[in-house]
Write a protein that binds this DNA or RNA. Structure first.
Lengths: 172, 172
DNA sequence: ACCATCTAGTTGCGAGCGCAACATTATCTC
DNA sequence: GAGATAATGTTGCGCTCGCAACTAGATGGT
């Protein structure tokens, strides 16, 4: 019961690699994103969801479910973005306790510039690492995992929003 | 320039899935780990590195490189663990500015109990999602990515510690 | 209509992290 | 050796996050 590892389970190793890869990519991409768009990775993630949505508007709860944020965290995030003029809040007519987060024209402009740069960075970063076929394999395996763990989180969500395009902000 | 997505790059999607899977797994595993060992995911990660090292001791800088923590973050983390009696600090005789973090007997006992539980949770969580062959494929692809981005982080590290066993704490 | 229950979103609070600045020690150059 | 430079850890500060408690509005049963 010491420095040995009797617990070299294959699955544990896989999960460890997953965490390491994810953290490593984030660590590289985050500073790049910040310097060429002024956005912190988390803000970018929120804005991407809005930018991808027709009408640029999403309910707060929807946005929280799509990002890896709790409702609380999303509230603060939208607060900051609103303060920065990128997002506005609008009341929901059908449900008066609800609110929409709406990407402002300024936010749209910023994202129109930031997204291509970010995509280019990702592209460059992963160039030559995996073959095209390997990339597809990886995507499909990850998708299986992602789908499997959806809904196990808080368990009561069950939201089935399933954008199978996994929104793939590429930063969070 | 609106709700469309002209940037559906395959690689971006893959990276997005990677982040989502990682975050999702963490969200599920973290509370489990906390309830059955009282350890926060981050502390566990640090302790695992020590538990896997012969002699249960590692230099602070080494530990920082292995975890996804900055030196600053590691200092605080070890502070907490020391306060909890799981780790002690020891001076390094050869380099008087350096310090070792050493897993205390209490820490060893806690980990001896916590690790198997954690491994079991991971095992259970991923059961039936991927075939054995798919798991191996996934591991190998992730390993390629991990290896490729090593050393691109702060760029000056170049530490080549390369435990090819990726330490795989399974909680990060 | 009335009350219990549930949901959407917000806030007080405490905790953790990273960056930049710092003290201390090692190393390199002359 | 003496001084410049680099590396190891640690701390002040500000930021972000999640949890739990809360307000306000919806929903369901009677």
């Amino acid at each position: 019961m010491a420095g040995e590892q009797g617990w070299d389970d294959e699955r544990v190793t896989t999960v460890g690699l997953l965490f390491e890869s994810s953290a490593g990519l984030r660590r590289i991409l985050e500073p790049l994103l910040l310097t060429d768009s002024g956005l912190a990775n988390q803000s970018f993630d929120v804005l991407v969801r809005l930018a991808r949505t027709p009408g640029f508007r999403l309910r707060m709860s929807e946005l929280a479910a799509q990002t890896t944020l709790t409702p609380s965290g999303l509230t603060r995030s939208v607060d900051r973005l609103e303060h920065a003029g990128m997002v506005t809040r609008e009341a929901c007519p059908e449900d008066r306790r609800g609110a929409f987060a709406v990407l402002s024209p300024k936010g749209q402009a910023v994202m129109a510039e930031a997204i291509p740069l970010h995509v280019a960075h990702i592209d460059e970063l992963l160039n030559g690492v995996l073959t095209r076929e390997e990339e597809e394999t990886l995507s499909s395996l990850l998708r299986k995992i992602r789908d499997h763990i959806r809904g196990l989180g808080t368990s009561t969500s069950c939201d089935e929003s399933d954008a199978d395009e996994p929104v793939a902000s590429g930063i969070s």
